[in-house]
């Protein structure tokens, strides 16, 4: 019988690239409510991506998970992943050491629309680790600050300890980002400080603190599903921003990342290929009230 042997080095659809982890930093301590969060700095290896895209990251011996890229593409020598130890694979990722090798498949997904935002005011609404994918975009905008109008960041987390990237906030403010923060529960100290306007409450309570021009504002939202839902509601109802101008990046259980495995299907969209970034106008058309976010 004729047998043909074929090797799959053709398009490497499911095969990751090996990348070395050059540094690992603690971002949030293990005692925080959300548990430990670490930054993993990867060698760049010529990989091109857009803010808002994600990668399928392999911890060899454990498995593969989708992780958003939290550094801007303009930072040319590295890719940073901000990862919470949430499950089996991310737990294993937290065990690796600098110098170890991980697998990287991607970038996947569509990313945030940047060019249509030129000349516009930008409003970020982030909850918890949802700031990670938005940080890549925020830095990218700051690298070309003059192209954009006001930049506002509304950021909420469960407790002061759970707030990400606090050490970068002075730099962002220096570059003209208006930062407002909230925590669900204060610690008695945080709420008395004044470096940034702050509130105890969910992140949507910060909507009352800002004045924006809805005609020239584009909003980017990321956070846990329930937060995304109420943030989008507030953006349209309270701040009167049009659904076409509100963008959310969705989280889904994903496996293949290339539109085959069926896990991330929402209506007629594959979140891994058509998303993860969708405008509220698209989300409304996807007609999924209970299960979108």
């Amino acid at each position: 019988m004729n047998e043909e042997r074929a090797f799959f080095d053709h398009n490497g659809l499911y095969t990751p690239t090996l990348l070395r982890v050059t540094a690992i930093e603690d971002e949030i301590p293990a005692e925080a409510v959300t548990g430990p969060i670490k930054n993993f700095v990867l060698e760049r290896n010529g990989i091109d991506f857009r803010p808002g895209q994600f990668a399928q990251v392999t911890v060899f011996g454990a498995g593969e998970v989708p992780i958003s890229l939290s550094s801007p593409p303009s930072l040319s020598d590295r890719i940073i992943l901000t990862v919470r130890a949430a499950g089996f694979v991310t737990g294993a990722l937290h065990q690796i050491r600098p110098g170890d090798v991980i697998g990287f498949r991607g970038p996947c997904g569509n990313g945030f629309p940047i060019e249509p935002c030129i000349g516009q005011d930008i409003l970020f609404v982030a909850g918890g680790i949802g700031l990670a994918p938005l940080r890549g975009l925020l830095w990218e905008l700051l690298f070309r600050r003059q192209d954009f109008g006001r930049i506002l960041l509304l950021y909420g987390a469960r407790t002061p300890r759970d707030l990400l990237y606090q050490y970068q906030i002075p730099e962002w403010q220096e570059k003209g980002v208006e930062v407002f923060q909230s925590v669900d529960v204060g610690d008695g100290v945080w709420e008395k400080r004044t470096e940034t306007p702050r509130k105890v409450g969910v992140v949507t309570t910060l909507f009352q603190e800002i004045k924006i021009d809805p005609q020239r504002t584009v909003a980017f939202v990321c956070g846990p599903p329930v937060m995304i839902r109420f943030a989008l509601l507030g953006l349209t109802r309270d701040l009167h921003i049009a659904p076409e101008r509100c963008f959310a990046t969705l989280e889904r259980h994903m496996k293949c990342g290339v539109g085959k495995c069926g896990h991330c299907i929402v209506a007629d969209k594959y979140v891994c290929m058509d998303g993860p970034v969708f405008s509220l106008a698209e989300l409304e058309k996807m007609a999924v009230i209970e299960e979108p976010w």
């Binding site: 060899f60 593969e64 496996k255 293949c256 069926g262």
Partner: peptide, 8 residues
Amino acid sequence: CFDIVDES
């Protein structure tokens, strides 16, 4: 639909 897992 398929799942992707490691066995190691």
